[in-house]
Write a protein that binds this DNA or RNA. Structure first.
Length: 511
DNA sequence: GGGCTCGCAGTTC
DNA sequence: TTCCAGAACTGCGAGCCC
């Protein structure tokens, strides 16, 4: 296998993932060298090595399987693929207007807004052990989400690491969700900063709206944050001439909404049109006026495409994919498979081994893929290669499980482990109580100091909810693991308790 | 031998 | 010194039942 480590002498799964806005044209080799030097020999690295080996073995197995496929089998598969394609094609619906909105470098942007000194410095949100996100200055150094802070510091010694403040992000999230609801009351949040919206109805109504309903005022001007913003008071020490403009990124694409430039006086207005683009531009304008933060959006006939589109003009941009089969197919052809929701590092590597790196390869190799992957997998690949996706936004489903986990420095004392387990059960029971839930399966997850993960579950005869009941099950699972390890102690770095509604596999009991 | 349930590892966001 | 947290879903194998 022509893997990266053979070429460059390191693990490909450890290498920089620059598949992210603001990370084009970096000195990858230099960055990777630093990442490698910092990680090499660590327990984490050793575990990654093991996992990479496993993936390579999976690929080898797949290639062996591929070698045994006959011309006949392939022909038969091709026929099946074509039948399936024709049937999927019939379900194509280009009538919906789906929007995916995504805040730009959300946590980092919030912190920069609230502390303007950070604005033109490389910064990230998180800790020395893990970063949640980074700003665009930091990304230029290869610093990105899911990277430990101590490695980021090696890449960018001047990096400022701000601790996460979830309550604050939740509050901002609520503000933007209020705006989402104006366009689609049934919008689906994916996380604090991301959501799917169905704009179809809004666009229909908007057509007949008078200009007054589409006119919006600027509240924010340079140097003068509005009084109504709660953070204003905290900032009163900031000198008047300090630039408080919400422009966070110097390289914003041109499609960005008109930002309040220095000429925009308070009370200036902006009139938005009736098209989808204008409606989305208006929504982003309102988000910016309300929060001083920018968002990017993708507009497409389905959720799969909208998600990809929102990434296209990030940050502070939007991208419309016209609702014609031709436009969709053109768009899909050059799309790298890694951009697709659901295809991560491992699947990408497996597909690459088969010469599939973008979606046009995907359709060309579909017969082969149908023989090498499970039905669910290749059906998904097929839908993607046809540019199909969900056209309606599912209403929020009930949760299927709930868990709480904690990472810590090595813990090898049984009494400490049991105490922690009890605490986790207590937290979990508290969370379950908040939502009035009960569960039938209790799962204990352990990660040892070598980063090896184990989960052990027990399904009960009846649903439970209290701390004592959960702990009774979790304690037994933990004791079994401790015994299995003895006389060696169990050396843990993470413990989690999860409760799941496992009656009929997934089912939550509501009392 | 199929069809089901369950446990667990692994992938992805 | 230091490599997250939480949720969903899939695949696969073992065990059980008919």
């Amino acid at each position: 296998l022509d893997t990266l480590e053979e070429k460059n002498g390191f693990l490909s799964r450890m290498a920089l993932n620059d598949n992210k806005a603001g990370m084009e044209g970096l000195d990858r080799d230099k960055i990777n060298k630093i990442i490698m030097e910092t990680s090499k020999g660590s327990r984490f690295y050793e575990n990654e090595l093991k996992r990479e080996l496993q993936v390579n073995q999976r690929i080898e197995k797949m290639m062996l399987q591929k070698a045994q496929i006959t011309e006949q089998q392939l022909k038969k598969a091709q026929a099946e693929v074509e039948r399936m394609a024709a049937s999927m094609e019939k379900s194509r619906d280009l009538s919906r207007v789906i929007v995916h909105v995504d805040m730009d470098a959300f946590y980092a942007a919030v912190e920069m807004r609230d502390c303007p000194e950070l604005k033109d410095k490389p910064m990230a949100v998180g800790s020395m052990s893990m970063l949640s996100t980074s700003n665009y200055h930091a990304r230029k150094f290869g610093v990105r989400a899911a990277m430990p802070g101590f490695i980021a510091k090696k890449l960018c010694p001047d990096l400022i690491i701000v601790p996460t403040n979830f309550d604050k992000y939740r509050a901002v999230s609520n503000e933007i969700r209020e705006i989402f609801a104006l366009y689609d009351p049934h919008f689906q949040p994916l996380s604090l900063d991301e959501a799917f919206l169905d704009f179809t109805d809004h666009i229909e109504q908007r057509k007949s709206w008078p200009e007054s309903l589409r006119t919006h005022h600027y509240h924010i001007i340079k140097g003068k944050p509005p009084k109504m913003n709660q953070w204003y008071d905290e900032l009163t020490t900031v000198p008047e001439d300090k630039d408080l403009s919400p422009v966070l990124f110097e390289d914003s694409p041109v499609s960005s909404p008109s930002l309040p430039c220095s000429g925009a006086a308070a009370g200036a207005v902006e009139v938005f049109g009736t098209s989808v683009e204008e409606a989305v531009r208006e929504m982003r304008f309102r988000i910016e006026q309300k929060t001083m933060l920018t968002a990017s959006a993708g507009i497409a006939p389905n959720m799969m495409l909208a998600k990809v589109c929102s990434d296209k003009n990030k940050p502070n941009g939007q991208y419309v994919l016209p609702s014609t089969r031709e436009a969709v197919m053109d768009f899909i052809q050059t799309l790298p498979v890694r951009k697709i929701f659901g295809i991560g590092k491992v699947s990408e590597k497996m597909l690459n081994a088969l010469g599939v790196s973008n979606c046009s390869h995907l359709s060309q190799q579909m017969a082969l893929l149908s023989l090498l992957f499970s039905d669910t997998s290749w059906h998904h690949f097929m839908e993607v290669s046809l540019g199909l996706g969900h056209t309606f936004i599912p209403r929020h489903e009930e949760r299927k499980s709930m868990s709480t986990e904690r990472t810590f420095k090595e813990m090898n004392q049984t009494d400490q482990q049991l105490a922690l387990c009890k605490t986790l059960c207590q937290d979990l029971a508290g969370d379950m109580k908040k939502e009035g839930l009960q569960a039938k399966t209790v799962t204990l997850k352990l990660k040892n100091v070598n980063f090896e993960v184990k989960t052990r579950a027990q399904t009960l005869l009846y649903a439970i909810s209290t701390e004592e009941e959960i702990f009774a099950a979790a304690k037994e699972l933990l004791k079994t693991e401790i015994e299995n390890e003895s006389p060696q102690p169990l050396r843990l770095r993470l413990m989690a308790n999860n409760s799941e509604a496992a009656c009929e596999r997934f089912f939550i009991f509501r009392p």
